[in-house]
Write a protein that binds this DNA or RNA. Structure first.
Ligand SMILES: [Mn+2]
Ligand SMILES: [Mn+2]
Ligand SMILES: [Mn+2]
Ligand SMILES: [Mn+2]
Lengths: 218, 218
DNA sequence: ATAAAAATTTAGGTATACCAAAATATTTGA
DNA sequence: TCAAATATTTTGGTATACCTAAATTTTTAT
């Protein structure tokens, strides 16, 4: 059975709003994720259900089947491997990779996937700190917390960003915050929950509550 | 102006049956190249003409405009760079790369193209000996000849293969003939034009006239 | 319980890219 | 020159993947 690029993108969208939690995946939410009309989603979900890639009914919405899950995870694996390749070997910055990876993730070749994995040294995390599913679809789990939930004085390490938009990533660059940097929350402003954070034991920067929620630490 | 994947494939097909010679490009020939119905070609050529990517009329057929030529060459450049990447860095053999490159050639990112070029060391030829157009669309020219036209006793070097099918390439592997190998034609059979060829000053192999026509030497 | 709000589906279209069969045009050979 | 062969285009369809507007269903709040 072949899965079209469009279908792959639906599976990925369904995965992203389901995983790791269970529960209803609204038609509307999928539409929003993909930037299309809810009416179009109805049709496609019906098609995906016919192909046994999702279970679908009005009451409980869409849920990936075993096969659908496998397909979704494979696309995500490819996306994150390509992002890693672009940053580590082609001088891309972390804010430049996503758009290209959206294209590369649909290239179909098992040999390419295997060889790329080996070439990269079988990495576990992508340039945004997102876990790369392994060949069997297992996803390394991260037990990380929002920076906004950390008490003052504790030394934490940046492990992931929860927003991959170029604007947020460039903002972090400007603040001098990158993956693996150590952070200590020095002060929490009571009135707006903004933070004063010490970065790598040197600089201190102010971060809004908004920004802190998108920085995941461990 | 955006050019769809399908349109890119038409431009490439038109280029391949035009270049470097001029002359009529039949509707039929394009259909054959792309494995589609001539009726479909009519429609698409009309569309490409509207987009000013080709000049098109019944009498003289299709001809790439300056812009169409540029687009076609860019796709070919990407195709050949990716083939080079796959062979040189991901352990692909020369008979495995074409299919994957057919997909990769449509990835759109100028940065990716530039960085890949640099990563590969700005190569001039792909794994089949085909010239890689440079960034400005200039194509290095090769003054090579069919092995079938070479007189006995002359020492030649394999520079290109004129058939990229896996079956032909695997056949060459089996005969122990690769790019850059030195060849000397020892005997030419009069009745069927088959050749006895010395490879790399060591082994001797028989090649059909068919095969010899697909091996280009210099 | 029920009306308003929100979500989903249906109905009727669009654009792209293909097809087969029939019609037309062009080329070629006798 | 003119009929047969060949090439191209027209005609009427198909499949995919979208859309808007209207109808329907479900949820929520009174
Ligand atoms: Mn991404
Ligand atoms: Mn990522
Ligand atoms: Mn190729
Ligand atoms: Mn090639």
């Amino acid at each position: 059975m072949t899965i079209s690029v469009t279908e792959e993108n639906y599976l990925k969208a369904i995965f992203s709003v389901t995983y790791p939690a269970e529960g209803r995946v609204g038609n509307q939410l999928i539409a929003e994720k993909l930037g299309i009309n809810p009416a179009s989603v109805t049709e496609m979900l019906r098609k995906l259900a016919e192909k046994k890639l999702i279970e679908y009914n009005r009451a409980s919405g869409a849920k990936l089947t075993k096969e659908g899950l496998k397909a979704a995870i494979k696309v995500i694996r490819k996306h994150r491997l390509w992002e890693t390749f672009l940053v580590e070997h082609l001088n891309f910055t972390w804010d430049e990779v996503h758009e290209v990876a959206e294209q590369l993730e649909h290239i179909q070749s098992d040999k390419l996937l295997d060889e790329l994995t080996t070439f990269l040294g079988n990495p576990s995390f992508d340039p945004h700190g997102d876990p790369i599913p392994d060949k069997n679809g297992r996803i390394p789990n991260q037990k990380c917390k929002n920076l906004s939930e950390i008490e003052t004085g504790k030394k934490m390490k940046v492990v992931k960003v929860a927003d991959n938009t170029a604007s947020f990533l460039k903002y972090l660059d400007k603040q001098g915050i990158a993956l693996a940097d150590s952070l200590i929350v020095k002060e929490i402003q009571d009135f707006d929950k903004s933070l004063l954070v010490e970065v790598k034991g040197k600089r201190e920067v102010y971060l809004s509550a908004e920004a802190a929620k998108k920085i995941l630490v461990e």
